[in-house]
Every structure is written in C-alpha cells, then in structure tokens.
Amino acid sequence: MPQITFIEFSDISHCVEAETGKSLMQAAVDNGIPGIDADCGGSCACGTCHVIIDEAWRARLPEPEEDEVAMIDMNPEPQPGSRLSCQLCVTEDLNGLVVRLPEFQM
C-alpha cells in the first residue's frame, strides 16, 4: 500500500499506509488524522477536507475538476497546492506523497 505523509499545521507528521482506490480524505479519516472535517462525507460540497500538496508533488497529480476549483475558491485563504482530499484518489503512484493540513478547515 502506498505511504502518505500528512503534516499537521503544528508540524506534527503522520505517515500512514493508504488503501488504493479510496480517496485521500478517506485515508486521512481511516487513520484518525486530526484536522480533516469532511463535513459533506466526501462529495466536493463543503471544502472541509482541504490539504496543501507538497510542491514536489503538485504537477504529478491530476488537475482539479471545475467543482473542486470552485470550492477551493471559496476558502478565504487558498494556497498554491490547495486541493480537496476527497477528490484525489489514492493510487500506487502516490507512494511517498506529502500533504500539509491548513490551520483551520473553513
């Protein structure tokens, strides 16, 4: 299973094994990563599974769809690399992915 590192805003780092085929959000929730609210349960409708993709990985992920862009746009503090983790599917190619969590989910 691919290994993914979530780094909390306070710099605490969690390296987890993520199940392929599920969303990155689900991987975070399944592994009890704090800081992912996922209020809508993973349907790109609330923006509360916001993560910031490590720079080295940004170009290697599929481009966000229009709906995801619209939801990220509503965040008062979007950053380069901001994505919704419910819209990213875990694959073997993501082994070693590093994502940071924002200070707050909005």
Binding site: A38, D39, A45, C46, M74
Partner: peptide
C-alpha cells in the same frame, strides 16, 4: 455530528459557519 445540512452544501455553503 458535523455531517448536517444546516450550512448548505456547494458554492453557497454558509460563509460564517466557523
């Protein structure tokens, strides 16, 4: 408990929820 509808979903989701 967070998975409720009161703030709405999508682009019009409540801005002041936090």
């Amino acid at each position: 408990a967070r998975q409720h509808l009161a703030f709405g979903f999508g682009i019009h989701r409540c801005m002041g929820n936090r």
